[in-house]
Simulated assay, not measured.
Amino acid sequence: MAHPSLKSAFAERRFIVAPGIFDMISAKVADGMGFTSLYVTGFGTVASHLGVADAGIATYTDMVGRVSTFARGCKTPVIADADTGYGGLLNVRHTVMGYEAGGVTGIQLEDQEMPKKCGHTPGRKVIPAEEMCLKIKVAVEARRDPNFLIVARTDARTTLGLDEAIRRGRMFADAGADVVFIESPESEAEMQAIGRSIDKPLLANMVEGGRTPILPAARLAEIGYAIAIYPAVGFLSVAAALERAFSHLKQHGDSNGLPASESYGFGRICELMGFPEVWDFDKKWAQISPLAEEKR
């Protein structure tokens, strides 16, 4: 069931910072930190689940189970990437219904041609704006809970220019999108123009090393944005930490001497994954089980 708190945050103009989650460890860590929302990154989820590029290879079947697991395992509302809706209008309807049933609070749909490519990478092509508007209308009709939010993204900026991207953003808002996401503006001035031009909650995609400048939350709010997602910061940090740890292991032949800052701690990860509850369960039922009686 969609969390009403996310829709309320937009209505109350509380700026939202959403970290990217890509597996259940990243989801559990982020879930305990007090964020208003979490963002299921397509790039990170495809990379961690399939080990391939986010280039339209992952299917609805690959993704719906993953995003549903994230939503069920987190108390924080989850916005999840759903690429193009994995096909035409009927596919979009099926995708929206599946994501909503899985407990997601917001779904992101984009106007790329299939197979899609990750934002901030070259070679992205978009479908006609009118076709995307139909997808948005189908998505709005398919949802059952009004707290389930439709995030509509356009990748038109990179190939067709800023004016076309803004035009599409306005069309998407008119078609019923709750949040408009114009991907890959290339300067703060472009982001200001977007903020002036579209009267809907706007999403900023903050990708380290991407095409868009990373601005402070206060500045994003000032120029008209409502939410910033950080899809890559988690998996980039994890990959770097793994490389350092594995390099130490390869060089020294053991994990002795790893800096304490490089380890989360076995006790902490046990707690994060819910082992104390498991131990309490085992303790309770071991006291009254027939096997326990036989051992006395």
Rank of each mutant, 00 (worst) to 15 (best):
M1G: 12
H3A: 13
P4S: 06
P4W: 09
L6G: 02
A9W: 06
F10G: 05
E12W: 03
F15N: 08
I16R: 00
A18Q: 09
P19S: 03
F22A: 00
I25M: 14
I25S: 00
A27F: 02
K28A: 15
K28F: 14
V29T: 04
V29A: 03
A30E: 04
A30Y: 02
G32N: 09
F35A: 07
F35D: 03
S37D: 10
L38W: 01
L38P: 00
V40D: 02
V40W: 00
T41R: 02
F43Q: 05
S48M: 08
V52P: 07
A55T: 06
T59C: 09
M63K: 06
V67Y: 01
S68I: 12
A71V: 04
R72A: 06
G73T: 01
G73P: 06
T76F: 04
D81Q: 01
D81A: 04
D83W: 06
G85T: 09
G85M: 11
G88C: 08
L90G: 03
N91C: 01
R93A: 13
R93L: 15
E100P: 06
G102I: 12
G106K: 02
L109K: 10
K117T: 00
C118F: 05
H120T: 06
I127K: 08
E130C: 14
E131I: 15
E131L: 14
M132W: 08
M132H: 13
C133K: 13
V138F: 09
V138H: 11
V138L: 06
V140H: 05
N147H: 15
L149S: 03
I150N: 09
I150G: 08
A152R: 02
A152C: 09
R153T: 04
R153N: 05
A156V: 01
A156C: 14
R157H: 10
T158N: 07
T159N: 13
L160P: 00
L162Q: 13
D163S: 15
D163M: 12
I166T: 10
R168W: 08
M171P: 05
M171I: 14
F172N: 00
G176K: 10
V179Y: 01
F181S: 06
I182P: 02
I182V: 15
E183N: 04
S184F: 03
M191W: 01
A193V: 10
A193P: 08
G195W: 07
R196N: 15
R196K: 15
I198T: 13
D199L: 01
D199P: 00
N205L: 12
G209R: 06
G209S: 02
G210C: 03
P213R: 04
I214T: 02
R219Y: 06
A221V: 11
E222H: 13
I223P: 07
G224K: 03
Y225W: 09
P231M: 07
V233W: 11
G234E: 07
A239C: 11
A239Y: 13
F246D: 09
S247L: 11
S247R: 14
H248I: 14
L249C: 07
K250W: 05
Q251W: 04
G257R: 01
G257Y: 01
L258K: 05
L258R: 03
Y264V: 12
Y264I: 10
F266W: 15
F266C: 08
I269H: 01
C270G: 07
C270I: 04
E271D: 14
F275A: 02
E277Y: 08
F281P: 09
D282L: 14
A286G: 15
Q287M: 15
L291R: 07
K295V: 15
